[in-house]
Simulated assay, not measured.
Amino acid sequence: MSTDELFTNPYSPWMNGSGMDGDVVLSSRVRLARNFSDIPFPNRANLAQLSEVKAMMQEILPELEDITDKPYQCLPIDELTNLERKVLIEKHLISNNHIENPEHRALVVSDDRKVSIMINEEDHLRIQCMVSGLDLAVPLELASKIDDTIESKLDIAFNEKMGYLTSCPTNLGTGLRASVMVHLPGLVFTQQIGKIMNASPQLGLAVRGLYGEGTEVIGNIFQISNQLTLGFNEQEIMDNLTSAVLEIIMHERAARKALMTYSAERLSDQVWRAFGILKYARSVSANEALSLLSKVRLGIDTKMITEVAAKSFTELLVSSRTNYLKNLQENENLSQNEIDKERAKTIRETLEKFKVVRE
């Protein structure tokens, strides 16, 4: 995939819906925080030191390509347009924090988009691997291979007592942050989501919005991740998160079953109204789109709607976003009315693209 396609093609591997428990879990991601010895953390480093970090990573890109058998690109954040930076956030490749001070920040991304490495975000390196469905083992294995290669070539900050040294104390130890993106309309509609939110901190988990820390929950999509890494090994972190997510999956499916049993007519009306609006509307706002898409996806997962594939939902999580649409039009100054019209058009075309053809 070319650099241009990175900003104009919404697809990423986590969208394909092939993973386990894909009716509830959209994706699984593993992120490793790493820093170089003898170089201050990014928030304390000067521009020369930040530049040195970026140069060191560019030198070992061929080594990383040998692991995944895929080429990598290194995109300097300060050379991207404002819209391109925001599209990368909407595609879950970088964070909001990564674009605040773009000079000497960069993104290393594999051609298949399964691997992305943020350079000079909160830490020198944030190694990220993302897959479809509930499967933390595969991204952890890939991230660990990349980490091992980097450590074999460069000196990583590590302390025998505290483990990997990171800019945020909550990442000390393994430096591992595992997260799972889940779609929980059943728990939201039955007003049980509060129990999940309240219980999560007691289990050492954080529950956040679609784009992670500091973002709102829209479209009934949540990101669930481990809060602490110090004092736990990688397997313990993975097992704890997986166990909690499996419990949430069970409750979500029970909530959907209850809706189908006791509120079938009301649910059917909401699902088909949402589908009708998205299929025919000529103007749709960003938050309205995700709210309606959530209902349509619930209709697909409960077999109410059989004429469109579930993959339409995950693709539209990117292709219906405001900055993605502005970038496609190469116009940052589109009016709200123009954006909402483009969004409605994109949704109509995507639903048609993923229409299920029956023989």
Rank of each mutant, 00 (worst) to 15 (best):
T3N: 10
N9V: 02
P10Y: 00
S18Q: 15
D21A: 11
G22K: 13
V24G: 04
L26Q: 08
S28C: 05
R31Y: 06
F36S: 11
F36R: 12
S37L: 12
P42D: 02
V53P: 10
E59Q: 13
E65T: 04
E65S: 12
D66A: 13
P71Q: 14
Y72G: 02
Y72R: 03
Y72D: 01
Q73C: 01
Q73F: 03
L80C: 13
L83G: 10
K86Y: 05
L88I: 11
K91T: 10
N96H: 15
N97Y: 15
I99W: 12
E100A: 14
N101V: 14
V108E: 01
R113C: 10
V115D: 06
S116W: 01
I117N: 05
N120M: 08
L125Q: 10
L125I: 05
I127W: 01
Q128L: 03
C129H: 04
V131N: 09
G133M: 08
L134H: 13
D135R: 11
E141K: 14
D147L: 12
I150E: 08
I156R: 08
A157W: 09
M162H: 12
G163H: 01
G163M: 04
G173S: 05
V182G: 05
V182K: 04
L184C: 05
P185H: 01
T190Q: 13
G194L: 03
M197C: 10
A199F: 09
A206Q: 11
V207Y: 03
G209F: 05
G209V: 08
Y211C: 10
I218S: 12
G219F: 05
I221C: 06
S225A: 12
N226W: 10
L228Y: 11
T229A: 15
L230Q: 05
G231D: 07
Q235A: 14
I237L: 11
L241I: 04
V245I: 15
I248Q: 02
M250C: 11
R253D: 02
A258D: 15
Y262G: 15
A264K: 15
S268Q: 13
Q270C: 09
V271W: 02
F275Q: 12
G276I: 01
I277G: 05
V284Q: 01
S285N: 00
N287T: 12
N287I: 08
K295T: 09
V296L: 01
I300T: 03
T302E: 09
E307W: 09
V308Y: 00
S319C: 14
L325N: 07
E330N: 15
N333Y: 14
K341P: 05
T346D: 00
E349R: 00
E352D: 15
